[in-house]
Amino acid sequence: MEKQLRKEAQRSASLKVKSGLAQMLKGGVIMDVVSPEHAVIAEDAGAVAVMALERVPADIRVQGGVARMSDPGLIREIMASVSIPVMAKCRIGHFVEAQILEAIGVDYVDESEVLTPADEDHHIHKHAFGVPFVCGCRNLGEALRRIGEGAAMIRTKGEAGTGDVVEAVRHARTVLGEIRSLQAKPHEELMAFAKSIGAPFELVLQVRELGRLPVVNFAAGGIATPADAALMMQLGVDGVFVGSGIFKSREPARRASAIVRATTQYRNPAILAELSANLGEPMSGISAAGLAENQKLAGRGW
């Protein structure tokens, strides 16, 4: 009875409870996994959460075709294998995939550009869900549109599946730089600024007041080494997603643990040096600059 009442209260779910979980993930590493075995390796290495997938982004790139929500059977197996939160991806705009993920009981839904978009104009109305959402962004306007739709957590898009951190850096610098320039603006310029970046005015005011996004902001897309993770943390994000970088490397368990520790001690070069030593080969990767426009995933999202 008590649980039933709580469930009902949750329907009108407070953003505090939804964004609160993301606050608990801060300073942590969220890892892409494709099996219960991977999930256990990630948890043992100290991941704060796992992203349950059928294919990591690097394989989606190679194999092509339409990338969809993963099999709920696989997601359930991964959920049963670990005690940490489990996230799963749905296609942009595919609110029925999101409903299914909510019904399975995943802890966070990633409305992700890594999968093939289902709607080329609209994202999911995320306020309608009890499960919280994380969404990708390349700039402040995109971040605030997603938050306006109900996202309780934001991540930079980077360029997933490349092992090249350059796009994650570009997107983090863009978002954080735009916040800094917003803070320097006088009030009368804020409406035109909101219009120019296509962001809800109220959220622009809130960001100016807070000096940061109103929700947790992680980096993602191309992070492959402890130094990459620490770089993103020093740039000012709250935590990191590592996708293909771990399980496409030679020694996933060691690399995963080193990236977790680097994310904690990101300001301590002596420790970072120690952590970076003898990790075995990283994922080989592809240069994001060499990708044709139609091979870039980050352009998906509106």
């Binding site: 469930k7 209260a9 409870v17 802890d107 499960v131």
Partner: peptide
């Protein structure tokens, strides 16, 4: 799981104001 996270007011006698002034409890997983 996360979907079962909730908020509930808690009477806490040891706090200033005592049980008459419940504390907003935020429970996340």
């Amino acid at each position: 799981r996360q979907i079962d996270s909730f908020e509930e007011s808690l009477p806490v006698a040891v706090l200033q104001g005592g049980e008459a002034c419940p504390f907003p409890g935020v429970f996340i997983r």
